[in-house]
């Protein structure tokens, strides 16, 4: 795997929040590489900074210090519209709370990322249908999120994440809101995606069982990467 292209690189990344007069360091100098086709899990207890790290990789936030390279481009130097474009085309997000848009149907939710990238209508429709078939929910395309179970919603969210054929899937506690068997089913989808299509996946979780689906696990504690044995002490 080492000979593969690095698609994400974090170099000494710091994130500091100001809470009144107090400075809170969510990340304290993280360095990390993700190679194409890799399935990386970032584990750590809550408050360890794993979601902050994920948000920055996903171009939702910029570091206070350090650099983040996505396909050799420093995201700290990108404009808001460039970041939006990267988020739309290169990254697919999967969230713990699914984050589907409640007023839209399953199909419309999947189509939305393609709308933002100006895909032609016919192409959008075709691709949304293919993705719905892939997550085995083509019989639910007209349903609103509220009419779907948690597992179904997360599968729709996976389909949405894949809509623009991103370079990397970022999954933030994808099974966190699901019971274990439904969560297992969602993980099967992600693993299948990784194995069959070679999709790069970065997943944040606090659950070791979920993390074991990944090729590699990094442990995060108090905003720093630590060896596994120190992570839970």
């Amino acid at each position: 795997m080492t000979n593969k292209e690095t698609i994400i690189e974090l170099k000494d990344v710091w994130k500091t929040y100001k809470m009144g007069a107090v400075e809170v360091h969510a990340l304290r100098g993280i360095s990390l590489k993700v190679k194409r086709g890799e399935f990386l899990a970032i584990m750590g207890p809550s408050g360890s900074g794993k979601s902050t790290a994920m948000n920055m990789v996903g171009c939702l936030d910029v570091p206070s210090k350090g650099n983040i390279y996505l396909l050799d481009k420093d995201i700290a130097k990108m404009s808001e519209s460039e970041l939006a474009k990267v988020r739309g085309k290169k990254i697919g997000f999967i969230f713990q709370t699914f984050n589907l848009i409640n007023t839209l149907t399953a199909r419309e939710n999947i189509t939305l990322p393609m709308v933002f990238q100006d895909y032609p209508k016919e192409e959008r429709r075709k691709r949304a249908e293919d993705l719905l078939k892939m997550v085995e929910l083509d019989n639910r395309m007209g349903h609103k999120p509220s009419e779907l179970s948690g597992g179904q919603q997360q599968r729709i969210a996976i389909a949405r994440a894949l809509a623009n054929e991103p370079e990397v899937i970022l999954a933030d506690e994808p099974t966190g809101n699901l019971d274990s068997s439904t969560g297992e089913r969602v993980m099967d989808f992600l693993t299948k995606l990784h194995k069959e299509k070679g999709t790069t996946i970065v997943m944040v979780t606090h659950d070791l069982k979920t993390a074991r689906h990944a090729d590699r696990i990094e442990f995060l504690k108090d905003g720093q990467i630590v060896p596994e044995k120190e992570a839970f002490t």
Binding site: A84, G88, N99, L112, R160
Partner: peptide, 16 residues
Amino acid sequence: TKEIGIMKAIGAKNSD
């Protein structure tokens, strides 16, 4: 607000 965050995460530009 949350919906706006979601839209931004899936690629909506400010202008969108």
